[in-house]
Simulated assay, not measured.
Amino acid sequence: MLDYTIISGNIFQDLGFANAEEKLAKVKLASVIADILEQQQITHQEAGEVLDLEVEKVNNLINGILKEFTIENLLSYLIKLGQNVEY
């Protein structure tokens, strides 16, 4: 007989992280931002100018290092990239 675990759909929750919903939301938003930058062929330098971020922070955003970002920051970056965001 095989042992298995049914997952919740939120890896952060499954691993017992605090603020799991917030962490998942930030990852999803950062992923959308990274996809937009890639689709529009925006360099990290150009993204920094558009988003008013240092290139290092753009790199962190694209690489999923999201401690320094809030959900509000990420939503504002989507707006700066021309996306329609409703709160």
Rank of each mutant, 00 (worst) to 15 (best):
L2E: 15
Y4G: 10
T5F: 11
I7E: 12
I7K: 13
I7F: 07
I7S: 11
G9V: 00
G9S: 00
I11V: 09
F12T: 03
F12K: 02
F12A: 03
Q13L: 11
L15Q: 07
G16P: 01
F17H: 03
F17Q: 02
A18T: 11
A18I: 10
A20P: 01
E21F: 04
K26M: 02
K26H: 01
K28Y: 01
K28N: 04
L29P: 00
V32F: 07
I33N: 03
I33Q: 03
D35W: 10
I36P: 06
I36H: 06
I36S: 06
I36A: 05
L37M: 08
L37T: 09
Q39L: 14
T43N: 09
T43C: 06
H44P: 13
H44A: 14
Q45Y: 14
Q45A: 15
E46M: 14
A47V: 05
E49D: 15
E49M: 14
V50D: 10
V50N: 11
L51W: 03
L51C: 05
L51K: 06
D52G: 15
L53T: 06
E54F: 12
V58C: 07
L61M: 07
N63G: 11
N63Y: 12
G64K: 05
G64A: 06
L66E: 02
K67S: 12
K67H: 12
K67A: 11
E68G: 13
I71C: 06
I71D: 05
I71N: 04
N73Q: 04
L74A: 04
L75D: 08
L75Q: 10
S76I: 05
S76R: 02
Y77A: 04
Y77H: 03
Y77T: 04
L78S: 02
K80F: 10
G82E: 05
G82R: 04
N84S: 12
N84Q: 13
Y87G: 13
